[in-house]
Each structure stands twice: as C-alpha cells, then as structure tokens.
Design a protein around this nucleic acid. Structure first.
Lengths: 88, 88
DNA sequence: GGGCATTTGTACGTATGTATT
DNA sequence: GAATACATACGTACAAATGCC
C-alpha cells in the first residue's frame, strides 16, 4: 500500500505536509495497531470518534481504514465496528 | 476484488439494483477492457466523460477506477489519463 | 518562462441506506 | 423502536501534474 514512514502512534496530522491526510492517518492507525494500542481482535474507535480526534472528514477516515482493510490489517463489519485482524 | 457478474460493455447502471453503483461501473469498465472497447495501452475516457455517460458522481467513478487500479487492470497518471495495462 | 486547458488527486460536508445492538 | 456504526453516493472546491501554445 506504500504508506509513508516516520509516523508513530501519537503523530499528529499535518495538513501542510507532503503526505496526503488519509495516508498519514493510515500510517498512524497502523502504528497504533503495531504498538497494540489497538489490540488484535478488538475494534478500533468508531469512525465518528476518529474523525473527531483527528479533525478530518468521514470520507478521509473511510479511505484510510479501507486501505488497511485491503492490506489485511482491519476488517469492517457494518453495524458493529472495525476490527483488528490477528497478526499473521 | 469480487466484482458482480453479468455486466457487459453496454450494461446500464441500475440505481435500484442490489449491487453498489461503483461496483457495477467497475464491472462494466472491465467488460469493455476485455472486449477491447478500451484497448491495452490506451487511455479510457476521462473522469468527466465517464461521469456524464453514466450519470454518476466523480467520487463514484474514482472508486471504480481505483479498484481496477488495485486489481492491476488500470494505471492512472495525473494530468494525462487512466491507461489500460497490458493483459498479463 | 508564462498562461491556459485538461485530467487526475485529495478533502470536505451532507444525505440516505443497511446492519447491529 | 431507538441508538450506534459502517456503506454508499452526491456535489463541491481546490491542488497537482501534464501538455500545448
């Protein structure tokens, strides 16, 4: 998926940076999964919570999580949440 | 990518159907590529042309072509167009 | 180099639908 | 039924890359 490097679990979104916001967000979420801030088998915060925390739009969160789904890191279940898949 | 079946090069978008519009559009574009309506090495119509032909939004076209990019069927080049990759 | 048109990329906000709790 | 949560789709605006004068 080619995410930018150098993003940790607590990195803030940089609107003026060279990386797109959705890629920055995907990198941060991935860092939190790696650090088990979001442990495998559990759901990450809801889209509404994430867009509030990072100050981005719903579509941007969806794009970030969608790519992590494609990468096999997350699985979204309508009505329930977005779950961290077991590290394989 | 799990596109719905039964869509040909001239299928029309069905708003009431059970398949999402963007998946229908991706299936139609893929059918046109298979039928060489859009030959390998050439660009498909621009986003503006496609959204006009199918009566959908820009975002919907982008989602359809984006998934065909992930599938290795298309490659978008900013400022130039969206090109059909050689069948491998 | 500058200016313009074309084309894709990103991001926002909003509305509605569907599934789960 | 109500609340929560993800899914789809629309419209809009601006940015970035390309190509052609």
């Amino acid at each position: 998926m080619d995410l930018p490097s150098g993003y940790g679990p607590n990195t803030e979104i940089d609107d003026e940076g060279m990386d797109p916001v959705w890629k920055q967000l995907a990198a941060i979420l991935l860092a939190r999964i790696d650090a088990e801030v979001y442990p495998a088998g559990r759901a990450i915060p809801s889209l509404t919570q994430l867009l509030q925390e990072f100050g981005v739009s719903r579509g941007t969160v969806l794009k970030a999580t969608g790519h992590l789904e494609d990468a096999g890191v997350l699985r979204a279940v309508q009505g329930r949440g977005v779950f961290v898949l077991p590290k394989q």
